[in-house]
Design a binder for these strands. Structure first.
Length: 108
DNA sequence: CCTATGACCATAG
DNA sequence: CCTATGGCCATAG
């Protein structure tokens, strides 16, 4: 298995596509964690990259990025107000930027 | 190459 | 509950 720049980019592209696919599959009313998405996408170590990928979505994207929060159940988006509002439209309770994972975490 | 910086995470105190 | 720490990975300078 050669390790060319192209090959590396391809695997990262694959990862991104899986992330998009998985995020799109999170049902309304549920949330997932960055680590959960990374694990389901096949790379448990890349939770950080999941956040990066979501942060780079085009503004007009219809992907429900706001359904992804951190492992503590907390919104870690630097601009959390919009995310909280969108989650509440889903019927998810948010208190002090926090969601009860026990209740809302996506059981994939 | 090295350092700094993230929408992260688990663990320890 | 909080902060600190070490680990992780990709990108930018």
């Amino acid at each position: 298995m050669k390790n060319t720049r192209e090959a590396r980019q391809r695997t990262q592209q694959d990862f991104s596509e899986r992330v998009w696919q998985l995020v799109a599959a999170i049902p309304s009313g549920n949330v997932a964690t960055y680590g959960q998405i990374a694990t389901l996408a096949g790379s448990p170590q890349r939770s950080r990259l999941v956040g990066r990928i979501l942060s780079h979505l085009p503004a007009e994207s219809r992907l429900p990025w706001y359904r992804v929060i951190n492992a503590q159940g907390k919104i870690s988006n630097p601009d959390p107000k919009r995310q909280q509002q969108l989650l509440e439209l889903d019927g998810v309770e948010v208190k002090l930027l926090r969601v009860k994972l026990r209740r809302y975490q996506w059981q994939s």
